[in-house]
Design a protein around this nucleic acid. Structure first.
Length: 487
RNA sequence: GGCCCCAUCGUCUAACGGUUAGGACGGCAGGUUCUCAUCCUGCAAAUCGGGGUUCGAUUCCCCGUGGGGUCACCA
């Protein structure tokens, strides 16, 4: 089968975590089956349109390394489209929707509705008050052709509604199996709005068919509107695609993931210092597991293992804590140079970090860093002589005098050493160990004052690691500073 | 509220109808270590309840309960 999936985000300015997973799953599925993946912009709600939102969305997808075969993309800052089924932006397809809506009017499967919003609102309120289902009462379905023509001539504002027939829709969902929904529960959905724009329901059916989409993989919130879509497919004579409704991603309190309880957009997480690949990995695991007993997977592994039948049915709570852990795992496997380079956006312009020193520092600090945004602070102790209270130099099992003596001796020892000893942290560690052993000293008496002299902190990386990052000269300088503190 | 969907540790999840119900995050306790982090080891922690079907149910069916989604000229 020639598989084709699509991702239709509404351009609201940011990419929701749930949308990211939907995009990922559609992408995985298409890749897995050697099919095509389409990006389509669903901008049919003029009230919610945000300038620049499409560009921002495309950039975020690019950052997340989600590529598509058809749809709009950025070329030299300009929006262009690729693919044989364009335009891929719904606001540029208005005529198509209108034509299809008119076809349904002719087939008497849809009708004009001239009701005012005010009347609909009142209707809904009274239905709610009497605990009746809130559905359109089909007032305009009673209109004679003459009355319709008259209103049309008058230029009265109108919408076009589906005429939902009696009966029920039974459909197959790849994830949920057979689902039955009685048409008594389905409202006469507006297909074409008063402003000439289609609603989601009309646009999605028309476009998915026009673009040759074979599999619709989307969030569970759409499950109850499938009957409308199935009906439309039938009325237009289109072949039905395969449906797969994904479980929702939830807040800690189990409600649908939303703002108010934390960050929900991909951009928010990237701005906080999460890595694209970690976010992608974590989100992919919400509802799907390639093997279980491992949590880090490459893109290719996800593609290889992806299977709609293996997707969970129940919602998954978005656990920031586990995401943070995973991010730390990804950071640890990055080289110091990569970490430094990727954390540039989090370090102020002209931060003045010596590249080589910065890289060495990252090599050491990466076990202590979970977010790229933490790099800036982690760098400080390496780039500046730290300030600290002299007492900190004293090991808990020792004295101030001993600390000073140790540092004095250490200084002599290190000063005499060739700087090649500073080539690797391991070499330094070996040298220090031998020094301690040869002089019959205790680790704590020597290493604690030395480490504090170098880091100025109660908790930090080891002294040999600091020495490797700082180099011989700076090491001696900091030891001198420490000695002066104790005098 | 109607309708629809769902139900394994606190969370993410694994388990051809047959396992001491496994792994991961988090928690707790140790180990390594001058300290911190990493790393390693161990511990606590779950099949929502009730009926069936079956030699045997986490697994299949029904009911209940609970949670969620949806009921717009938003997607």
């Amino acid at each position: 089968m020639n598989v084709k999936t699509r991702f239709p985000p509404s351009p609201t300015g940011s990419l929701h975590i749930g949308s990211l997973r939907t995009a990922l799953y559609n992408y995985y599925f298409a890749k897995k089956h050697g099919g095509t993946f389409v990006l389509r912009i669903e901008d049919t709600d003029q009230a919610r349109s945000v300038p620049g939102a499409v560009e921002s969305l495309i950039r975020t997808l690019a950052r997340m390394d989600i590529s598509y075969d058809e749809g709009p993309y950025l070329q030299d800052g300009h929006l262009v489209e690729k693919g044989p089924n364009g335009p891929y932006t719904q606001s540029n397809r208005l005529n198509t929707y209108r034509t299809h809506a008119m076809q349904l009017i002719e087939q008497q499967q849809a009708y004009y509705c001239f009701c005012t919003k005010k009347r609909l609102e009142t209707l809904r309120e009274s239905q709610q008050a009497t605990k009746r289902p809130t559905k359109y009462d089909r007032k305009c379905l009673q209109l004679t052709q003459a009355e319709i023509d008259k209103q049309l001539d008058l230029g009265t504002s109108y919408v076009i509604r589906m005429k939902i027939p009696e009966g029920k829709t039974i459909f197959q969902d790849e994830i949920r199996g057979t689902v039955v929904i009685d048409h008594a529960e389905v409202d006469d959905q507006v297909l074409l709005k008063a402003d000439g724009f289609p609603t989601y329901h009309l646009a999605v059916v028309v476009d998915d068919h026009a673009m040759g989409v074979t599999h619709i993989i989307r969030g569970e919130e759409w499950l109850s509107s499938v009957p409308k879509h199935v009906l439309l497919y039938g009325w237009f004579g289109f072949d039905l695609p395969v449906f797969a409704h994904l479980p929702l991603i939830l807040n800690p309190d189990k409600s649908k993931l939303s703002k108010r309880q934390g960050d929900v957009s991909v951009e928010d997480y990237l701005a906080k210092g999460y890595l694209e690949e970690a976010l992608s990995n974590y989100v992919s695991l919400l509802g799907f597991n390639p093997t279980s007993n491992r949590e880090i997977y490459t893109r290719d592994e996800f593609i290889e293992a992806f299977n709609l039948k293996k997707i969970n049915k129940s919602g998954a709570v978005f656990d920031v804590n586990k995401l943070l852990w995973m991010n730390g795992q990804y950071i640890k496997q990055l080289s110091g140079a990569k970490i430094l380079a990727r954390s540039k956006p989090f370090i102020e312009e002209g931060g003045g970090v010596d590249e080589a020193l910065g890289i060495r520092a990252m090599e050491i600090e990466k076990t202590r860093i979970q977010l790229l945004s933490e790099v800036k602070d982690a760098l400080i102790v390496y780039t500046m002589q730290p300030m600290y209270a002299a007492d900190l130099l004293v090991w808990k099992k020792s004295t101030r005098e001993d600390a000073k003596e140790q540092l004095l001796n250490l200084r002599v020892f290190l000063n005499a050493k060739d700087s090649s000893m500073f080539d690797t942290a391991a070499l330094i560690e070996k040298g220090l160990k031998r020094y301690i052993e040869d002089n019959g000293l205790k680790n704590g008496n020597v290493l604690w004052p030395l480490r504090v002299a170098l880091s100025g902190q109660e908790r930090s990386a080891g002294p040999h690691e600091f020495m490797w990052v700082l180099g011989k000269q700076e090491t001696l300088k900091r030891i001198d500073h420490a000695i002066s503190q104790l005098t």
